[in-house]
Simulated scan of single mutants.
Amino acid sequence: MTKRSLASELAHLFNLFLAFNHKSQGRIERARNRLDRALSLTNDAEPYLMAFDGILMVSEDRHESARKRFRESLSALEAAMDAEKKYVAPYCRLWLSMYDVNCAYEEIDRLWEEAHSLEATGTEKALLRLPPKDALRKEFGNRKGLTSTARL
């Protein structure tokens, strides 16, 4: 995290809170507006913010942009050596695996279990909620794939 004034930090957190709140209520356009404001208050987006941006893009049916954003988050995490990497990385790999038609359900399930078992900050867990496991099973349970997420 870059240094910024207390007022800027509070504005950033306030906009992030409102983005999450609006998304939770299905007000996607308002969520986008608030997330863009939150992102404008930081010089470099943290990986969990990039992942949340990807989730918001999924809600906006901007799937190609979402995949790109999840990959950007993973790239940013390459340099990270903290607890954030432990949750955000498998979370992003989970979403990328759902987009990959060659990825078997077993791999999707494994990534869900990995992310579910990990510790994360309250902000990360709140913003980056895992999809319900039964919904994944229903959507991807019959998928037979050829690859793992190692190539994602």
Rank of each mutant, 00 (worst) to 15 (best):
R4N: 08
L6Q: 11
L6D: 11
L10W: 11
A11H: 15
A11R: 15
A11T: 15
H22A: 05
Q25I: 00
I28P: 04
E29W: 10
A31L: 05
A31C: 00
N33R: 15
R34C: 12
L39V: 08
L41M: 10
P47V: 08
M50P: 08
M50G: 04
A51S: 13
G54C: 10
S59H: 15
D61M: 04
H63M: 12
E64V: 11
K68S: 15
L74N: 07
L74K: 01
L77S: 01
A80I: 06
M81G: 02
M81T: 11
K85W: 01
K85D: 02
Y87S: 03
V88G: 04
Y91L: 10
L96Q: 04
L96Y: 03
M98A: 08
D100K: 01
V101W: 10
V101T: 09
A104Q: 14
A104Y: 09
E107P: 08
E107V: 14
E114Q: 10
L118Y: 13
L118G: 01
A120Y: 00
G122Q: 14
L130M: 06
K133D: 06
L136D: 05
L136M: 09
R137F: 12
T147Y: 13
S148W: 13
S148K: 10
T149C: 05
R151A: 08
L152K: 05
